[in-house]
């Protein structure tokens, strides 16, 4: 049970960073923390106590009940790639913002109002 609670705390920590922090890079880090917490949560969903890796070692006596869930692991692979793309894009945009505004402080980005 404690693992799930810790994962949830990690998720809210990331959310906290996005909502409170003023630095663009710290916001991106907060987003990454949220994504990591979701990956850990997925692993926990598929975890089984005392189970092995999801590979059949013997075809004569397959034991799918003694394996962890492989579907969530496939989902995490996809999510890692997705979050990599988003992080790349966000960092690129943050760098271009630094070129234009000369700062990473989100309070200085105030060209859009209303």
């Amino acid at each position: 049970m404690i693992e799930y609670i810790l994962t949830f705390i990690l998720f809210t920590l990331g959310l906290y960073a996005i909502l409170i922090k003023r630095n663009l890079i710290k916001i991106i880090i907060g987003l990454s923390i949220m994504e990591y917490s979701m990956n850990v949560f997925l692993i926990l969903v598929g975890y089984k106590n005392g189970a092995t890796i999801p590979v059949f070692t013997s075809l004569t006596e397959p034991r799918p009940d003694a394996m962890v869930d492989p579907v969530v692991q496939a989902m995490i692979l996809t999510l890692v790639v997705m979050s990599l793309a988003v992080t790349f894009l966000l960092i690129t945009i943050a760098m271009r913002i630094y070129d234009k505004y000369g700062t990473y402080d989100i309070r200085e980005l105030n060209k859009l109002k209303g």
């Binding site: 998720f11 959310l15 996005i18 663009l24 916001i27 987003l31 949220m34 994504e35 979701m38 949560f41 997925l42 969903v45 579907v71 969530v72 999510l79 988003v86 894009l89 966000l90 945009i93 943050a94 271009r96 913002i97 234009k100 505004y101 980005l109 060209k111 859009l112």
Partner: peptide, 30 residues
């Protein structure tokens, strides 16, 4: 331009956070 980058950053961060909420929902449903 400056405004476009600013808008894009805001759009990207808010929507990715929204998407992570959906992801959590999908995990729980799974």
């Amino acid at each position: 331009r400056a405004e476009e980058l600013e808008a894009s950053f805001k759009y990207a961060v808010l929507n990715t956070v929204g998407l992570l909420f959906i992801l959590m929902g999908v995990c729980l449903l799974y």
